[in-house]
Each structure stands twice: as structure tokens, then as C-alpha cells.
């Protein structure tokens, strides 16, 4: 991992470390007067491991990921979910309801309709099954925010109070005394950065949303931020 350091006049240490994950860049800035650089670097190492494990679980473009196994599962066959994917999927289903269908992890399914997501089932015993093999789970618009929520406990457990974590510019978490407009919150952006780029599908119509526009939301939870930013972006275009 690449890193840079800066020691402030009062002895406070700042560590900036960055790396590639989830098909984007991750930037982590930690500030501490209590811990040395080795400790701060170790902390980032743990955070990176957590992020990579989330990616390994939920990246549908990785044929060895757990979510790829779900996308290849015969209809009606049960799969016992890992605790991590169980957590992710139950959150996604909850946000689907909260956003009245605008946040939908099955939007990439063949022949998708607003009812498609109803074809996946997560039982209380932690098993997954689907009604149709056309159902595709796509967590691309969710994992970065979820990762923010999972690295926050790492920071808290290791006594780091001031941190800025940037998942590809679109999902950012600020803790404690760090620069910027948000503090102890997550800033999530959803949208298109140019007139030509479109990557968000309106699950109600199945159409790509075009045009250079974006929305930003500030939330306590990064995962909630992903769902809410998506809801608002699509709502703006209805």
C-alpha cells in the first residue's frame, strides 16, 4: 500500500494511505497524537483487509465470490449465507422497502420488474434461495457505503478518533476532527459525472438515467447513504 506521513508542529501525526479496491480507489487519512505511524499503518492494514473481504464476498464480477455463487444457484436450491452476506442482503432488502423500490439490487436481472426482488428469499435460518435463475444480485451501488460502516468499528476499537475514509470519491466517512463539511457522518454521491456516462437504472422503468446530474446525502450510516442517494437521484428524474 502507498502511504505518506506528515508530523504537525504540535507532534500530531497524520497518515495518508491509499490503494485500489472495489474497482475504485480507497483513500484513508488518520490523525493521532497518541499513536505512532506503525500503529496507524497497522490500523489501515486491518481496514483494508475488511474492505477486501467485503469485496471478495459481494463482487458479482468475481466468479469466485459468494454473490456469484448465488447468481449461479439453481432456482429453489438453498444456500447457507455467510454472516457477512446475510447482513448485506437483509440490509438491501430493508432499504428496498424503505425507498419504495428505488434502491433495488436485482435491477440487473434479465426481464427485471419492480417485483423481481420479491423472488429472492432469505430465511431465518440464514439460507438464501431464488425463484428464478434470471435473478441477478448486483451490489455495486452498495458495497462502498457498507464498507464504511464496517471499518468504523475498526477505528473505534483501535482508539482512532480522527479519520477520513474515501471510497472512490462517492462514499466518504469523516470521523472527529478532519477537514471538510461533514463531521462524524457519511457523505454519499449518486449520479452521472458527464452527459455521456450513465450507469444507474431506474428500477421502475428499466431505463438508464441520462444526463449530468448528481445528488449528495449526509447520513450516519454509509450503507443507508447509498440507498438514500440512489432513491433521491432516481426520484429527481421521475
Amino acid at each position: 500500500m502507498s502511504f505518506l506521513t506528515r508530523t504537525m508542529p504540535d507532534g500530531t501525526r497524520a497518515l495518508y494511505e491509499w490503494f485500489g479496491a472495489m474497482h475504485t480507489r480507497v483513500d484513508i487519512l488518520l490523525r493521532s497524537s497518541a499513536y505512532d505511524y506503525d500503529y496507524l499503518r497497522d490500523t489501515v492494514g486491518i481496514m483494508r483487509q475488511e474492505i477486501c473481504e467485503i469485496e471478495k464476498t459481494g463482487n458479482r464480477f468475481d466468479p469466485t465470490s459468494e454473490v456469484s455463487r448465488l447468481n449461479a444457484l439453481p432456482a429453489g436450491v438453498k444456500h447457507t449465507l455467510s454472516p457477512r452476506l446475510y447482513d448485506i442482503l437483509t440490509l438491501c432488502l430493508r432499504y428496498n422497502k424503505q425507498t419504495e423500490g428505488l434502491f433495488d439490487i436485482t435491477v440487473q436481472s434479465k426481464g427485471h420488474s419492480p417485483q423481481t426482488i420479491g423472488g429472492i428469499h432469505i430465511d431465518s435460518d440464514g439460507t438464501y434461495s431464488r425463484d428464478s435463475e434470471n435473478i441477478v444480485i448486483d451490489l455495486s451501488g452498495f458495497l462502498k457505503g457498507y464498507a464504511l460502516d464496517r471499518v468504523r468499528p475498526v477505528l473505534e476499537e483501535r482508539g482512532i478518533t480522527d479519520a477520513l475514509v474515501n471510497m472512490g470519491n462517492s462514499s466518504i466517512m469523516a470521523m472527529g476532527d478532519v477537514p471538510g463539511p461533514v463531521r462524524n457522518a457519511c457523505l454519499t454521491t449518486s449520479g452521472n459525472d458527464s452527459p455521456d456516462r450513465c450507469h444507474i437504472v431506474n428500477p421502475l422503468t428499466g431505463e438508464m438515467i441520462r444526463g449530468k446530474r448528481q445528488v449528495q446525502v449526509v447520513t450516519n450510516s454509509g450503507a443507508e447513504g447509498e440507498a438514500e442517494a440512489t432513491r433521491r437521484f432516481i426520484s429527481c428524474c421521475l
Binding site: 497524520a14 495518508y16 491509499w18 483513500d27 470519491n169 462517492s170 477537514p179 471538510g180 457523505l187 454521491t189
Partner: peptide
């Protein structure tokens, strides 16, 4: 390194930051 983070690292001591110039759509 991300330019905005570099700037933060270099100038943090002066508290010059009022915005997050890197926030936006996905990199």
C-alpha cells in the same frame, strides 16, 4: 495519491480546508 488528500496532508496544520473537493461520483 489523490490531489485533495495530498493538499490536506500538506496544509492541515493551517486549517485551510472548508470543503471536500474530491467528493463526487465514483472514481
Amino acid at each position: 495519491p489523490a490531489p485533495a488528500f495530498l493538499q490536506m496532508l500538506n496544509k492541515w496544520e493551517n486549517d485551510l480546508f472548508e470543503e471536500l473537493p474530491f467528493a463526487g461520483t465514483s472514481w
